[in-house]
Design a protein around this nucleic acid. Sequence first.
DNA 1: GCCAACGTTGGC
DNA 2: GCCAACGTTGGC
Length: 137
Amino acid sequence: MRYWLFKSEPSTWSWDDQVAKGDGGEEWDGVRNYQARNFMREMAVGDRGFFYHSQKDREIVGIVEVCAEAHPDSTTDDARWDCVDIRAIEPLPTPVTLDQIKADEKLADMVLVKNSRLSVQPVTEADWTHICALGGL
DNA sequence: GCCAACGTTGGC
DNA sequence: GCCAACGTTGGC
């Protein structure tokens, strides 16, 4: 199993919106970036991901699971863009903030820190485990 | 709200 | 194929 991070601006699509979709999940659509798309194409059903709120909150708020592998993005006719479906698994008891991540030398190499604009990104198993612990899981 | 960083587009 | 111009993202 691999680990990922999905970034969303909460005013557009928040953790609460994701939870409201239930176990059926929802398309992670709207991505128009090749790097992000390529990562989604690498995902397998059952992979886990962090759900990150960008902009105002800047924190990891929950855990999601990939529930459908990459397929055409229904929000465009452009065949270039694919997306996966994800569903909410559980919230982090304590959200892990960007400030915390930046201050933690173990997490200094995270893509979130190094390339803040990439909206879908891989997370190493070590970072995954560490952040889960920080978040109270 | 500003601006730096980055990605994409399109003219040449 | 290069690069300037432009648009977008997201931290601050």
